[in-house]
């Protein structure tokens, strides 16, 4: 929670400094829609090791000037692994089961971005930082029987990407970025939530 507070203060600072600057070639408000692929790392990889091709991310950003923008985004990612029948020892016995391990995350995060080049560039690289909360839906299936848990967790996500306008002053841009997601999520054998995520999509300046 403390990190969120610091983050909100930082955002307010950016707002204050840059509120006056308005020399822009595109409308300041943009929408962004991405398709996401994520690779689990660390203990999450031990839980469900498969790269997830089931994800998306959507949000909006407001440009305070040519370089700085801030906004909000939501996403979705589904992690899954099926483990063949095995015997899992317990305290007073054992369970033989085929396990299906699933984890779905829905992050809702504040975003801030800094663009390295001017808006008329052919390629606009940027860095971003996202922080917020993520809904974690954990379901471990033992055969057809499920053991589940739902919770909200803090999540922080640095991001590195490029925007490629479809023309010099086009409001439509191709977007590609990679992000690292971290959450201090603990559930079963998961001690931390760590993923590397690649996103491709479009960013459209609407007004």
């Amino acid at each position: 929670m403390k990190s969120i507070k610091i983050y909100v203060l930082l955002l307010a600072g950016v707002l204050g400094i840059t509120g006056a600057a308005k020399a822009q070639s595109r409308p300041p408000l943009s929408l962004q829609l991405n398709y996401s692929i994520a690779q689990p790392l660390g203990s999450l990889k031990d839980y469900a090791n498969k790269t997830s091709f089931r994800g998306w991310k959507a949000g909006f950003l407001y440009n305070f000037n040519d370089q700085f923008s801030a906004g909000l985004n939501v996403g979705y990612q589904d992690f899954y692994e099926k483990v063949p029948r095995a015997i899992y020892p317990g305290k007073d016995g054992a369970i033989s089961a085929v396990q299906q391990r699933t984890l779905q995350t829905i992050p809702i995060m504040l975003a801030a971005q800094y663009a390295f080049t001017k808006p008329e560039s052919k390629v606009i690289p940027y860095v971003g930082l996202n922080a917020g909360i993520a809904a974690m839906r954990y379901e471990k299936y033992w055969g057809e029987f499920v053991e589940g848990d739902d919770s909200w967790q803090f999540m922080a996500t640095p991001e590195l990407g490029i925007n490629v306008p479809f023309g010099k002053y086009s409001p439509v841009m191709f977007n590609a970025n990679v992000q690292y997601n971290y959450s201090p999520y603990k559930m079963g054998d998961i001690t931390n939530f760590n993923t590397v995520q690649a996103n491709i999509g479009v960013k459209i300046h609407v007004r």
């Binding site: 089931r54 998306w56 589904d78 899954y80 085929v98 299906q100 057809e144």
Partner: peptide
């Protein structure tokens, strides 16, 4: 196409 993998349909 990116909905979740449904465990009960995969058994």
């Amino acid at each position: 196409s990116s909905c979740r993998k449904e465990p009960l349909n995969n058994l």
